[in-house]
């Protein structure tokens, strides 16, 4: 295995000093890897990502136990700005474009922390337009009025403008048509291979996430219940049944719906 870019060691996250959301999550993102964080609503995927990017504190959350290291350095006491300058940028769930700014202005704000001059920023703007030609057509449009897919592209493009080594991608498929989801994931794969960007992505759509990721972690109630290579997870009986909707003999039919569900093996 290649060296760890990011490692999260047994972290516990508490909101508002009382609500315990993560109860000991550990994970590793290797240099150049695409790692998926899977699980249902409220499992703790977003909280894990925000713990890494340090956006937690803006929501009154706090890492109370454990440690997060990035390239060997403790980063869980830094602020988001410091993390972006070190090469970790988060793309938040629900896109969060700057609605009243144009698409191009959105992309340029992504370069806020850059110190390497206008020419380099201009070059990266062309790189982003290269990956998302549609954004170039819409560069002068207000981001609030472009389509959901274009907003997701803007959000990813904006993160790229910071020249990150690791992008924390939260729920990229949310509210998008399946074809667009496929398109976005294709670009994620290309960015990973061509630009060497590593990804930690949180996704409810287990099926597509496991197709594009190398490794996956399954979160339930703030704990990692299962992890493994994406190909191994896809073959796991429990993952198949509970996350991919496949029974023992292929796709489950609602005609033979059971009144009880088989107990998950990992709870045993």
């Amino acid at each position: 295995m290649t060296s760890a870019l990011l490692s999260v060691n047994n972290i516990e996250v508490v909101y508002d000093h009382v609500i315990l959301v993560l109860k000991g999550v550990s994970l590793t993102v290797p240099e150049g890897g695409v790692v998926a964080l899977l699980g249902a609503n409220g499992a703790g995927k977003t909280t894990t990502l925000k713990a890494v990017s340090n956006l937690l504190r803006a929501e009154r959350g706090e890492v109370t136990r454990g440690a997060i290291t990035y390239r060997g350095e403790r980063v869980d006491r830094l602020d988001p700005h410091a993390l972006v300058t070190r090469g970790v940028t988060q793309v938040m769930e629900g896109r969060h474009c700057f609605e009243h700014l144009t698409v191009e202005e959105n992309l340029l704000t992504g370069a806020y922390t850059r110190k390497d001059g206008r020419a380099a920023v201009a070059r990266d703007l062309q790189m982003v337009y290269g990956y998302f030609p549609r954004l170039q057509d819409r560069r002068t449009a207000q981001a609030g009025y472009i389509s959901g897919g274009e907003q997701q592209m803007t959000a990813i493009g904006r993160a790229l403008m910071a020249r990150p080594s690791l992008i924390l991608l939260d729920e990229p498929s949310m509210g998008l048509a399946p074809q667009l989801v496929e398109e976005i994931f294709d670009i994620v794969r290309r960015l990973n291979r061509e630009e060497g960007v590593s990804f930690l992505l949180a996704e409810q759509n287990t099926n597509i996430a496991l197709r594009y990721a190398d490794y996956g972690y399954i979160l339930e109630n703030g704990r990692v219940v299962l992890d493994g290579k994406a190909s191994t997870l896809t073959e796991n009986a429990d993952v198949k049944e509970f996350y991919l909707g496949l029974g023992e003999g292929g796709r489950k039919s609602y005609r033979e719906v059971k009144h009880y569900r088989r107990r998950k093996r990992w709870l045993a």
């Binding site: 990017s53 956006l55 803006a58 602020d79 988001p80 700005h81 993390l83 972006v84 300058t85 940028t89 988060q90 793309v91 938040m92 969060h96 474009c97 700057f98 609605e99 009243h100 700014l101 202005e105 959105n106 340029l108 704000t109 992504g110 806020y112 922390t113 904006r158 993160a159 403008m161 910071a162």
Partner: peptide, 23 residues
């Protein structure tokens, strides 16, 4: 200007501004 753009970005969405590293 870069700072001016960042100001407008913050006005639009604090969280997103934080996420791209605007202090």
């Amino acid at each position: 200007t870069r700072i001016g753009r960042a100001l407008r970005a913050v006005a639009d969405d604090h969280q997103a501004a934080l996420s791209v590293g605007i202090p």
